[in-house]
Amino acid sequence: MEGIKGAIKDALDFSDFPKSERIGIIIFYIYLLIFPWVVSSSFARAVMIQFLLFALYGMGWNTIGGYGGQVALGKAQYVGISAYTVAMMMILFNIPFWVSMPIGVFLAVLWSFMIGYPLFRLKGHYFAIATIAVSLVLQDIFRNWEFVGGERGLSLPFKGTPNFLYMQFKSDVYYYYFMLIFFTLGLFYMNWFRKSRLGYQLRAVKANEDVAASLGINVRWAKIKAYAIASAFVAVGGAFYAVYHMYIDTSSVMHLELSILIALMAMLGGAASLWGPIIGAAILVPLDRYLGSWIGGAKGLLGLDLIIYSIIIMLVAALEPRGIWGIVEKVRAKRG
């Protein structure tokens, strides 16, 4: 009991951040709270929902990728597992979202243990490529598996009337606030996580695995645990994606590009920092959506949005691998 109390206290305690950052996050959060009342454009709302979703994905990736320093590039498979679970359970047995989501998350975590155990025998490049390979295998299987819709994908049955149990609403405002709740819980969890034993141990693993082992850390197991946590995060997002879009296929919830994007959000914003994935998502998601709607769809300009994307990736990797938050910290260190 005492432990849970301490954990909750840690999760809600942001006092180790500088005052400017605390004020910044409060202002940002208030903006998030009132956003649907200020902006009524459904496109803008959709962009914000996607921002919250990707921020959640990015926070999850940050456990294994940021704090643990393991370049996991197959996170989309866990988005897919839980999205498909939610969709299939609703199609076959009419099971509500709030029941199927935990099952989807559970299956994703289970799969992550099964994959993580052999995966974490590997390091560096071997690991990164292997994560891609596994997710491609799963994607191929789902694409060719008629039971789960194969190439056609799955459409969720429409209930007709707004329904909380199945997460079907008339207005996207509802989706927005549910996503905001997930985002908020995710943020509190990560705030606890970074101060937890596993959080510290992962950073030690990232710094030097031999030293970490000499301090009583079971390196492989620590990585597997963090990988499972990351999978749970993206699985929650995947379940939400299924009921929000009412349609899924392998290219929307299992594609390699989604995996990359998830990692990129955290990388761009600043891996191993609490704000990094949020900043990354806040920049990349609107950039992607607005670029996509302005120029991506225009005739003859196919792929331009992704070209801009890739230039950003290369610039960050070459100039400041610690991302935007790394630049902020550099500037701050110079001043003070």
């Binding site: 432990g3 301490g6 840690d10 101060k195 937890s196 034993r197 510290y200 141990q201 950073r203 030690a204 990232k206 710094a207 030097n208 031999d210 030293v211 970490a212 000499s214 301090l215 009583g216 850390i217 191993a272």
Partner: peptide, 28 residues
């Protein structure tokens, strides 16, 4: 201890030592 103190990490000295402390407890 190790002959060469290597660390590519972003931890402060205090945090490094806390990692050692976490060996025997999960309480921060």
């Amino acid at each position: 201890t190790f002959q060469v103190i290597e660390s590519g990490g972003d931890m402060s000295v205090k945090e490094e030592i806390m990692v050692g402390g976490f060996c025997r407890t999960s309480n921060r």
